[in-house]
Write a protein that binds this DNA or RNA. Structure first.
Lengths: 171, 171
DNA sequence: AATAAAGTCGATTAGCTTACTAGACTTTTA
DNA sequence: TAAAAGTCTAGTAAGCTAATCGACTTTATT
């Protein structure tokens, strides 16, 4: 559970939260249904949801007719919150706090840590301003429901960065 | 060796490269001296340098009087290169290539992958434009040499992001 | 009250990754 | 030829990742 790296578990968490966002105000959804619709390992998802519940991002209803639901509307839940709970700080090394300390105290390497902090700030700016509602909206190719997977006509959702085609082969 | 997370090993690599940058054009430097000056585990550093050599970032001179040196001037070596060799792609999940594929093919989750790609692009912009010379220059508190660790008068190097003071405790 | 349907919780696990260390070997200089 | 360097293969303890299992508790329905 270390810095800025979205694990498989983190991706599962984001998918589950998106599913709950799509079904917001439909009451509690069973783990089984989330797992089925998003194709996630049910028992593992159980643990993930528990963590998100302890972090007060979702809430549960126990017993028959129980399940999980978001504690806030999708427009008020940001990707950063989910990622921090499951995968920890957004910084590429340590966390913002310790980086600031290192910048003050490890003079020979401070410039390096400043760059790490810049990277974390850049990531934070993006992830703290993108809500579940934002990505749900962007995914409105009506590809959300069930297994549907048709091709409209070049939907090109969201005015994001254009990736040249080549230039780098990496990440 | 996975996405956007600088490991301890990656930090060692960056420190070693900065040391070589400081001693650029002084000929080959022995592993032992790099390890001593930067306080890195010598045997581990050996492996790191070997990887950087295979990646053609540094070159070695074998035998007595041997050692390591940068293959290019510090102003032409970017942090991204070093991090990619040691810690892999800059994306928070997978790599840029596979994210682009997922954006095209996993319609239900494309918006999520687009955000991941935005994050990787933001990190890449920073790390691909910061050279060893840049951080060496920023560290010109003359704190570079040996164990010196004095305090000048608020050097505040580089016009970077101001961090409010609180607001988040994390990331 | 009994039963079934749900979430809760603790333990366990195979496989991988991380951060090393050890030691034998090769190359080069003096 | 001896000493000083880098090279290379192996090994390893500890921790993490992505799960699974089973027993337990809570709640709704009959």
């Amino acid at each position: 559970m270390n810095p800025m790296r979205v694990s498989q578990k983190g991706l599962y968490a984001l998918q589950a939260m998106m599913m709950l966002a799509r079904h917001y105000s439909q009451g509690a959804i069973r783990i089984r249904d989330i797992a089925y619709e998003e194709n996630l390992p049910e028992k593992f998802l159980e643990l993930i949801l528990l963590e998100l519940k302890n972090a007060r991002i979702v809430e549960s209803v126990r017993g028959a007719k129980g399940g999980y639901q978001l504690r806030h509307p999708p427009s008020e839940i940001y990707l950063s919150e989910i990622i921090r709970v499951i995968d920890g700080p957004l910084a590429p090394f340590g966390d913002a706090e310790s980086l600031r300390e290192l910048i003050d105290q490890d003079l020979p390497h401070r410039a390096l840590y400043q760059v790490f902090l810049q990277v974390r700030d850049a990531a934070a700016r993006i992830l703290e301003s993108t809500s579940l509602a934002d990505i749900a909206k962007a995914s409105e190719t009506r590809a959300g429901r069930g297994k549907s997977r048709r091709k409209k006509k070049e939907p090109r959702v969201m005015p994001m960065i254009v990736h040249g085609g080549k230039g780098f082969q990496d990440a």
